[in-house]
Each structure stands twice: as C-alpha cells, then as structure tokens.
Amino acid sequence: MANYMELLSFGDSGWGDELASGVLVTVTLALATLPLGLLIGFLIAVAKNSTEPLLRNAAHVYTTIFRGLPELLTLFLIYYGGQMAMSALWRLLFGHAFEVNSYLAGMIALALVFSSYASEVFLSAFRGITLGQYEGAYALGLSRSRTMLLVILPQLVRLALPGLSNLWLNLLKDTSLVSIIGLTDLLRNTNIAVGVTKQAFFFFFVACSLYLMMSIISSFGLRRVSAWAERGQGRR
C-alpha cells in the first residue's frame, strides 16, 4: 500500500505530478472545445430550422458525416489530413514544412463531433419553443436578431441544457482519444507511467477514477447551472 502511495506522490519518485498535469490538459482541452462546439452546433441548428431547403440540407450533410464517423477516425483525418494539406500549402508559400499542433487538431476534431450532436439537441429545443414567442416578440417591434438573442435564446438554454450536459460528459471522455496523437493528456501520461513502472492495472485504475471524479464534479456543476436555468420556472 505504501508502495502505491509512493507511486502517486508528487516529485521525482512518484507520478502524481504527471497525472495532475495530464488532468489539467484533459480539462483545458475539453473547456477549450466547448465554446467552439456550442457555437458551431447552434449555427447548424439555426440552419436546420431554416425555411430554406438548401440551407437545411447543407446542415444535415454536416451532421450525417460527423455523427456517422468514429471519433477516432475524425481525429486521424483532421490530424493527418490537416498535416498533409497544411504542409503542402506552407511549402508552396514559405518553402518549409508545417507541424500540425496535436492540441489544435484534437480541439477541431472534438468540436466537429460535439457540434454535430449539439445541433440535434438545439434543434429539438427549438421545437419546444412555441411560435407565439416569435410572434409576440415581432409584435413588440423587436428585430429578428434581438428576438433570437433576448427572447428565444434564454428559453433555448433551459430546454437544451439536459442534452448538452450529456454531451459535455461525452466530450470529457472523448478527450482521451487525443492521447493517441501524442497529446500529453491524462491517459497519455498514465501510459508513460505504466511503461516505466509496469503497474498497468493500478495506474489505469487510477486514471479511470480520475475521469470518474471529473464527471462527478461536472455533474455537481451542471446541477447548479440547471438550477440557474430553471430559476424562472417556479417550484414544481
């Protein structure tokens, strides 16, 4: 037992600090992806909600692709494909190769996946808002953009929150995939620790527990956000 505690200690002999920095990378990656994914997801949902068939179809193609591909494959396509495309472009422009940042590639790939699921969540939330809300806002003389911002969006947040909470938890788990393209997140650092110490079961169990801890903390946070979003609803 003492042996295991030493393995997890901070400093030269233990792996505690490596695991902690891995947790930090995992959390910051997920947090950095979230706004991007939410924004793209919202725009795609608006497009799907449009009366214009061309725009709707373009949005549906996006969702079909990124919900149908395995996350791992999306990641590889972005990472290797981006590497090749950017290198070709850079060689043309500056005459030297370009190194794709695995953090950025991971962020883009995760945002693509997240946004395609988020757009479905937003879309069903849009369907939960009655037409009268739009009509009422227009009757008050609000412009379209102000209607969206002041009337629809606040209600949308409340309706979309349960679905988005699930997507956040999925995002947190999906970040583990970036360890494969070399980003030193929690799982990658765990792998390194296993390679050195040969304590595979112990370290992977610790990593799983840390992921579990992250989702438990998120659940508490999300419960507070949901209480905030429901504040106008009165007691039920």
Binding site: L169, K173, D174, T175, S176, L177, S179, I180, L187, T190, N191, V194, A200, F201, F204, F205, A207, C208, Y211, L212, S215, I216
Partner: peptide, 16 residues
C-alpha cells in the same frame, strides 16, 4: 463515466 479507451487499457494491459 470513464472513457472506453481507458477501460480497454485497464483490461488489456492491466491483465498483464
């Protein structure tokens, strides 16, 4: 609550 990848590692490498 945990990533499938981590579970897979836990079983495959952990068994070792």
């Amino acid at each position: 609550g945990t990533p499938l990848l981590a579970q897979t590692f836990l079983v495959y490498y952990g068994a070792g």
